[in-house]
Amino acid sequence: MRVYGHSMSPLLHPGELVLVDREAYGGRQPRLGEIVAVRPDALGGQAVVKRIAGLPNERIRFGGREWQLGEEEFFLVGDQSEHSLDSRMFGPVSLEEIIGPVTVRVWPWKLL
């Protein structure tokens, strides 16, 4: 997949190619801090890349607001959190909405 936008810089920049493991979450749960490709229902099918900042059943606080995550809900935030459009706006996402972890930045090469 090709990255557009700056919300995951300095790790991912616009134009960079990344590999996403679509099978990873068949055998395990997403982990805190993992970078994932997600297709939130609220964005009408657009795939986005964010970092997992909250796991199921956790209580999350950001900028004076608070979210209580459900049993299968994950909270996503961009690394450039001041400018990122993420779970603070479109809400937590379910496991079904997560495509998979971003495992490799193809160029410049980096295992994530």
Partner: peptide, 10 residues
């Protein structure tokens, strides 16, 4: 495409 959505400056 994989969008790293943001307000500015993307």
């Amino acid at each position: 495409p994989l969008y790293a959505h943001c307000d500015v400056p993307c």
